[in-house]
Structure formats: structure tokens, C-alpha cells
Design a protein around this nucleic acid. Structure first.
Length: 699
DNA sequence: GAGCACTGC
């Protein structure tokens, strides 16, 4: 029986224009498959192009690009900027004499789907005049491609081979307001390049809030005379529908329950239209889904005409389950998508009219004092709240129910802290060093990270042998580490694996560790999944366990059926095969011998220690663990195969996540003597240590 | 006995 519904009280303070310059009507799919369009005649394509709001600004944009080194374009959702501006530049001759117009995107799907749309508009085959480059997939022609879409991470990689990016005449950084790690790195580096290449033009596509910041950053005019400015802002209106915003009258004690109540209230009192609810994590999503499914059953028993179809959406969900949120529901059914932040930018679901926003998000945080990264539930920014609301105004006017008061909204920070300021910087610093930035502390960061984070990164890179005592990249170790598309610890482990005689196994382990959610546990089959997963488990820990999984996957001819039976992530495992191949090629390039441990686990474990010695912990008499670096309390994560086992005395781990406690993930048992043997500079014997030492004593 | 936002090279 359905419990009586407590009434949620909302009031409506007025209209708010949605959309923070997001534009993703193309990517209504995930997983990299481009969207397929109906064939259109060239005439109707031309007409459609001219109807886009950005078309009115065509000449003005070209004028600004001609006369200013940098143009910041504030392009609202639906303005058409991502697809049109590159074409205007092409038509105006910016790709003459073999030059290329480059457009970056933070995500792979966006790069491929926008590229295919533009190719289609030009009647071109993708990969010729219009192409894209993302990791593992280069669909561009070095001679023929004039407009190239790429991920911003890929652009940074290209700078390693071509530091001045000579082949580009114009670079457009799309979605720059998202401030992803690689967008920020690219921005700092491009400013440096611009000083040497006055001919290079930049277009920064951003949201209103950040436009001024970008302009100030890129304005090279120091004369004080505004006529000599090198950067200008242009705003292009979008095309979206209004979204009514509703706040609660009083604070909500439990947003999970409030989400369920609000969905039911919408269902009872509102007209047609699908619902999208934002929550912070998988657990919350599943809880809301099961509560709603229960209520929906009760409602249908009471003869409610319209049915509810409740669907979860988060990154860890198996692919087939994810695809269900894109299926259109019949008119008699209302679709309710309960999602994590994945639905804020990464995917777009058509037909959403009602949005429910809990005001929270799970974000990565980094503690520069302890060098521990964690995931923390944090209040969202105003920009995020606007973005979420805008998800309801894409096809027609919508409504957004915010599960917080208007006063609470006013307290939210304007924008989210850039990733650069809340991450472990060792991969960033290594990359910058490889790009010839000697003094990283003085690098032109758009938002400088905490100095302590940089110091931690420099210390770790030194301990790994990637930097010398003067902070210079070492040859060959540091140079090679920077070439790997992995964190420096993984790169070190791979480069050492030849010496340990286990490079075949290590390259598999490294590839597998890049895949999230290797093991699937569907909410209703948890027991069965755990039983299957145990078959791969070994006492040494998680690293050798995932090695077993990969080898079994290959032994069973990469069968998807086999994956399903063992509750393993088939798409993830296929990706591991590709990643492994890329890593193996780099190993061959650096002449790392291809060796196998032939069943001896110890050499593999020692090799892991050679990269991960900084992440070591010892068993404390309390039953928990303590880091060797600074004696912090840690616990084995419940997903580790070591969780239920007799706890080993010494372990290394891949990462720490902080939820209710600090949990080590991907944990492997080691011998303490290996630490002294393999990282003597990092862990010296107790007798030489002073009391105030940063490094903990070995016992 | 108890838990894994999201990208990207």
C-alpha cells in the first residue's frame, strides 16, 4: 500500500533563463557512436544553418578574429556556435595554405558527434575536409583535413610533438567554462604560444560568468589604452525555452525522500513531460528508483491512468541499462530518469520537461597536506544549478523544482572550483616539464593551484626518479614517463617491469586499472555476482585478481556471454584490451623487454611496489591501517578482495577514497623489506630518522 | 560488515 504523500510546498519566485552556454543537442547518445541524421538536401542544410542565432553574428565574429588575437564567445545553448564558427572561419580562408582550424571539446563523444554533424553539413566524408582526433581513434587526414575536432587532452599531447602548434591558424576551445584539467592546461600553454606566434588566433567559448576572467587572462595589452586590447568578448544569444524555477518554502531534511515525493507530485498534478532528478551517487539513485517503483505499482493498482517508467542513470551502470534512458516512452507513460551528475553535461536526454535538483554533487577533492584525494558530497554552484534547470527547457518550456530555499540558493558559490585546484598535480607537473616549462611554480595558470599541491607533486616525481634534485626532467626515465597516458606511478611501474621480468603481466594490470567498474553487481543479483567474482580472487590482493580476470577473458575469446555469466563489464574489458595494446606499443618504443613472470607472483608485486611505494600502509594493532608517509588511519575498501581476508601486515594501494572513512582501493599485500630495497631514498631505516621527520619510521 | 561523481591522455 502506498503511504499517504506528505505535501511538498513550492513557491515560484519568477522566471530564470536557463542554459550556461551548453550545446549538446547532437549527442543524445553515449559511448562514442555518432548520431545518425536523415539525409538532407544541401539547400535545406543551408537554410537551417542560416536560421541559427549565431548566423547573424557571422561577419562580426570574422571581423573580431581578424583583428584580435583572442575572442571570447559567450554562446548560449542552441546558438549553433560549435558547428558554425569553424565553418565561417573555413569559408573566410583561415584554412588556406595547408593550415588547420582546430576545435577542442572536453569529451570524446562531443568531439566525434560535432565533427560528424559538420562533415554532413558540408557534404563531406568524415575524416577528409572535416575530421576528429581522440585517443585510440584518429579520423583525420594530415593533408586534407581543414577543420579538426579534438579533445583538449589530445591538443596538449600534440604540443609535445609540435610545441608551437604550427599547423593551426585558429584554435577554438569549446566549453571552456567547464574548466576541466586539460582545458586549463591548454589555456596556460596557449597564452605562452601566443606570445611567440602573434598570428595564432584563439576563440574561447565560455559561459557569461567566466567571460571577463578569460578576457583579462588573454589580454596581452599592457599599455592601458583599450584600443590596443588583444582580446574581445562577443555574446551570441541561444535558442531555448523558459524554465520556471520553484524553491521549497523551508529547508528539506532528506533530499532522497523529497525527490520521491516531488516526482509523485509532478505525476499527479502536472501535464505531460518526462522527469529528470539529480542525486549525488549510485546508492542514492538506486534508493530513489526502488522507492518510486514501489509507489508506481501502488498507483497503478489504484487505477492511475498514466504509468511511471523509472530508470536509473550513472556511469557505472552497464551499457544496455544506460541506453534505456534514451528510449522514448509511449504517450501513456511518463519517464522518470534518476541520475547522477552525468546528466548535467555528459549526456542529453530528449523530452525532459521537469527537473528536480537536490543542490548537491559528489566532487573530487585533494588535500595538499596529506596528498590524499577524496570524493566529497558538496553543494553545487549557481552555474550548476542553472545548467541543471536548463535540462528541462530543451524541447519546450519546463519546470525546475529545487529542493532548497531561495535563501540557500543565494548562498551557493557562483561557479565550481576548477579541477586544477582540487586534484593531485603529479601528472600535470610531469606533462608541463615535458613541454619545457622549467619553472612550473611560475606557470601562467588561469587559476593557480595551491602551492603545497605543487610541492607534493614535485616530491613524488623526484621519488619516482622522473625529476632530478634540481627539478629537471630526467633522461630517459622522466621523458618516458611523460609519454605514457597514465599517472606517473603507473608509468614508473611499467617502465621498470622489464627489469623485474614481468612486463606482460604488468601491462595487463596497468590497463585493467584504468577501467572503472570491472566487476558489476546488479542490485537484485548482488549475491550471485559476489559468488562469481570470488572465483577470480587471490590472496595477494586486487592487482593479481584483475590480472586473473583479464587472462580469463582472453582465454574465453573475449566473449560477452562469458562476461554476463560472471557479472563482468564487457565494454570495460574490451577497452582494457585497447588500452593494453597502446601501452604495449609504448613499451616496445622504449625497448622494455617482453618478459613473463611465469606464475611467480612475487616479481609482479615487487614491480608494483617500484611504482606505488609512496602509497604504502602497515597494519595497526587496532585492526585498521596506517600510512607509512604520515601515519594516517586507513581501511581496506569493501570492494577489495582483501576486505574479508586475514589482513596482511603490509600493503600498497592505488588510491584512497574518503566516504565515512578513508578507504584504500585496489590493495595488494607486500613485504616491508621491498620498500627499503626499492625506494631507499623514500623510506630510510629508522636509525637515521629525526623525530620531526615527514616520513614515518619503518619498524 | 559495508560501499564506488565525472572526464581525459
Amino acid at each position: 500500500m502506498a503511504a499517504p504523500l506528505p505535501m511538498m510546498k513550492f513557491w515560484k519566485p519568477g522566471l530564470e533563463a536557463p542554459g550556461v552556454g551548453e550545446e549538446r543537442e547532437l549527442s543524445s547518445e553515449i559511448g562514442g557512436s555518432p548520431v545518425i541524421y536523415n539525409p538532407l538536401s544541401s539547400l535545406s542544410i543551408e537554410k537551417q544553418r542560416q536560421k541559427l542565432p549565431v548566423f547573424k553574428h557571422r561577419n562580426h565574429i570574422l571581423y573580431l578574429v581578424e583583428n584580435y588575437q583572442t575572442v571570447v564567445i559567450v554562446g548560449e545553448t542552441g546558438s549553433g556556435k560549435s558547428t558554425q564558427i569553424p565553418q565561417y572561419l573555413l569559408e573566410a580562408g583561415w584554412a588556406a595554405e595547408g593550415k588547420v582550424i582546430g576545435v577542442t571539446q572536453p569529451r570524446r563523444v562531443a568531439a566525434t558527434s560535432v565533427a560528424s554533424r559538420v562533415a554532413e553539413e558540408r557534404g563531406a566524408l568524415l575524416g577528409h575536409e572535416v575530421g576528429y582526433t581522440i585517443r585510440f581513434d584518429d579520423c583525420s587526414d594530415p593533408h586534407a583535413t581543414r577543420i579538426k575536432f579534438l579533445t583538449d587532452g589530445m591538443l596538449v599531447r600534440e604540443m609535445m610533438a609540435d610545441p608551437l602548434l604550427k599547423k593551426y591558424s585558429v584554435l577554438m576551445l569549446d566549453e571552456a567554462h567547464e574548466r576541466t584539467l586539460y582545458t586549463d592546461i591548454a589555456i596556460g600553454l596557449l597564452k605562452k604560444i601566443q606570445k611567440k606566434r602573434r598570428d595564432l588566433r584563439l576563440i574561447i567559448a565560455s559561459a557569461t560568468l567566466d567571460a571577463k576572467k578569460f578576457q583579462e587572462f588573454f589580454n596581452l595589452n599592457e599599455s592601458g589604452d583599450p584600443n590596443k586590447d588583444t582580446c574581445r568578448i562577443l555574446t551570441v544569444e541561444g535558442r531555448t525555452y523558459p524554465v520556471d524555477i520553484f524553491y521549497t518554502v523551508s529547508p528539506v531534511p532528506d533530499y532522497v525522500k523529497a525527490t520521491v515525493e516531488t516526482v509523485l507530485k509532478i505525476h499527479e498534478t502536472e501535464g505531460d513531460g518526462d522527469v529528470l532528478a539529480f542525486l549525488t551517487g549510485q546508492e542514492e539513485v538506486e534508493r530513489v528508483v526502488s522507492l518510486l517503483v514501489e509507489q508506481a505499482r501502488a498507483l497503478s493498482r489504484f487505477g492511475m491512468k498514466k504509468h511511471l517508467r523509472v530508470l536509473p542513470m550513472y556511469a557505472g551502470l552497464p551499457y544496455q541499462e544506460q541506453m534505456k534512458v534514451f528510449e522514448r516512452a509511449p504517450p501513456s507513460v511518463r519517464k522518470v530518469v534518476v541520475a547522477t551528475n552525468i546528466a548535467e553535461t555528459s549526456i542529453t536526454i530528449n523530452g525532459i520537461v521537469f527537473v528536480i535538483d537536490c543542490a548537491f554533487v559528489k566532487l573530487r577533492a585533494y588535500n595538499p597536506k596529506t596528498a590524499i584525494e577524496s570524493l566529497v558530497v558538496t553543494p553545487i554552484s549557481k552555474a550548476s544549478a542553472t545548467q541543471r534547470a536548463g535540462r528541462g527547457g530543451r524541447n519546450r518550456s519546463g519546470k525546475c523544482f529545487r529542493l532548497y530555499t531561495e535563501e540557500d540558493y543565494e548562498e551557493l558559490p557562483p561557479v565550481t572550483v576548477p579541477e586544477m585546484q582540487r586534484t593531485n598535480l603529479s601528472p600535470v607537473i610531469l606533462q608541463l616539464k615535458a613541454l619545457g616549462i622549467d619553472n612550473v611554480l611560475r606557470f601562467n595558470f588561469l587559476s593557480p593551484p595551491p602551492a603545497q599541491s605543487m610541492v607534493q607533486a614535485l616530491e613524488l616525481l623526484y621519488a619516482l626518479g622522473g625529476l632530478d634534485q634540481y627539478g629537471r626532467l630526467t633522461e630517459p626515465m622522466g621523458v618516458r614517463m611523460a609519454e605514457f597516458p597514465l599517472s606517473p606511478m603507473f608509468a614508473k611501474m611499467l617502465l621498470e617491469s622489464g627489469n623485474f621480468g614481468c612486463s606482460k603481466e604488468i601491462v595487463t594490470i596497468a590497463a585493467m586499472m584504468q577501467i572503472q567498474n570491472v566487476f558489476l553487481s546488479p542490485p537484485n543479483q548482488k549475491k550471485a555476482a559476489a559468488r562469481e567474482h570470488r572465483k577470480f580472487a587471490v590472496a595477494e590482493g586486487d592487482h593479481l585478481t584483475i590480472l586473473n580476470v583479464y587472462e580469463a577473458f582472453i582465454k574465453h575469446q573475449k566473449s560477452s556471454q562469458w562476461c554476463q555469466e560472471h557479472f563482468l563489464n564487457y565494454k570495460g574489458l574490451l577497452r582494457a584490451v585497447t588500452v593494453r595494446e597502446q601501452l604495449r606499443r609504448l613499451m616496445t618504443k622504449f625497448k622494455v623487454p617482453r618478459t613473463s613472470s611465469e606464475g611467480d607472483p612475487d616479481v609482479i608485486l615487487k614491480c608494483i611496489v617500484s611504482g606505488f611505494f609512496a602509497n604504502a600502509a602497515r597494519l595497526h594493532h587496532s585492526g585498521s591501517y596506517r600510512t607509512l608517509r604520515d601515519d594516517r588511519e586507513l581501511h581496506i575498501h569493501p570492494t577489495s578482495v582483501l576486505y574479508a581476508e586475514k589482513p596482511p601486515k603490509w600493503v600498497v594501494f592505488n588510491e584512497v577514497v574518503q566516504t565515512s572513512k578513508y578507504y584504500m582501493r585496489d590493495v595488494t599485500a607486500i613485504e616491508s623489506s621491498w620498500l627499503v630495497e626499492l625506494a631507499p631514498h623514500f623510506y630510510k631505516q629508522a636509525k637515521n630518522r629525526s623525530i620531526g621527520s615527514k616520513r614515518a619510521k619503518m619498524t
